[in-house]
């Protein structure tokens, strides 16, 4: 009997131990430490020293216009890209679920940008926006290409939006295609026989049936858009000025450019609460709309 219990302990340690150890060291303890460092004047120059400063960092943040601007920027960015990427992905999925001759090739094409990381994509698009667009503008005279791309806060914002959607849509398309393929065919036929037109069919039958996929896609895009960092760093570096700084970028810049780690940690903790709040609310709302087929 005693032997048995020893063996159980042994198994628990062997199977769970390594993972638990790495998780504690790398994620959990740093996360808890964050609550402490948020209230200190910890800086990047003397990493061992951190004096308790109470609510001082919160006061600093309250009057930090850059931080609030980046929050506004991130919220606007999230709304625009979540809608844009999902509408595009859904339309692509609808089209590529039909028996097109180039269907498989196009699925590959639309998915391709997704395997490249945000850093490299941002650099590629820097070239497209500054040189490629200018050339197209000269050749076609379309006003769209003659805008000062990435040179103003507005074009910087839309520049990041375009690249983010270009990168994300393919991934979501793959999920929507799988959902459409798994849809029971009889409901669709029944609706057709009842005289539903294409739009009614889409809105009242297809959309409710693939709601679980919509929940997942909205969750993934919301969370990725709200945490957007790599693209921001390589495409605009937050510029011009700090006008296109995302929240994640603002946290990074506060710590690594200004050496204010304590303040950066406080911002990072607020960032964590914002991410949790937004993704949890969003999942709660879309979950309510899911139906049983």
């Amino acid at each position: 009997m005693k032997n048995n219990r020893l063996s159980e302990w042994m198994q628990q340690i062997v199977f769970v131990g390594p993972g638990l150890l790495f998780f504690l060291a790398v994620v959990f303890i740093p996360f808890l430490l964050g609550f402490y460092y948020s209230f200190t004047d910890w800086n990047g120059l003397d990493m061992n020293k951190a004096n308790w400063t109470g609510l001082h960092n919160l006061h600093l943040i309250a009057s930090d216009t850059n931080f609030w601007h980046s929050l506004g920027f991130t919220l606007k960015f999230t709304v625009v890209t979540v809608i844009g990427a999902n509408v595009l992905a859904f339309l692509l999925a609808l089209v590529l679920s039909r028996p097109l001759k180039t269907r498989n090739f196009l699925r590959t094409v639309f998915f391709l940008p997704n395997v490249i990381g945000g850093i490299l994509l941002g650099f590629i698009w820097q070239f497209i926006f500054t040189k490629g667009f200018t050339t197209i503008g000269e050749l076609t005279n379309l006003p769209f290409f003659n805008l000062p791309w990435l040179g103003t806060p507005t074009t910087g914002f839309w520049g990041i939006v375009i690249v983010f959607i270009w990168q994300t849509a393919g991934y979501m398309m793959v999920i929507y295609i799988a959902a459409l393929a798994g849809m029971p065919k009889d409901l669709e036929e029944a609706a057709r026989i009842d005289g539903a037109n294409s739009f009614q069919l889409l809105w009242n039958v297809v959309v409710p049936l693939i709601m679980p996929a919509i929940t997942i896609c909205l969750f993934l895009t919301t969370s990725n858009a709200f945490k957007m960092f790599d693209l921001n760093l390589s495409l605009t570096k937050g510029g011009p000025g700090t006008s296109t700084q995302s929240l994640a970028f603002n946290v990074y810049a506060e710590a690594l450019n200004n050496n204010r780690y304590g303040l950066g940690t406080m911002k990072a903790m607020l960032f964590f609460f914002a991410v949790s709040l937004i993704t949890v609310t969003q999942v709660w709302f879309t979950k309510r709309r899911e139906v049983e087929a």
């Binding site: 740093p30 964050g34 460092y37 945490k227 994640a248 946290v251």
Partner: peptide, 22 residues
């Protein structure tokens, strides 16, 4: 706890991670 931890953005632990890894 592990499932809940998936929501933590990397930025929220990165500075403390620098400290711990040192």
């Amino acid at each position: 706890a592990l499932v809940a931890s998936m929501i933590i953005p990397f930025q929220s632990v990165m500075l403390q991670l620098v400290r711990i890894t040192s």
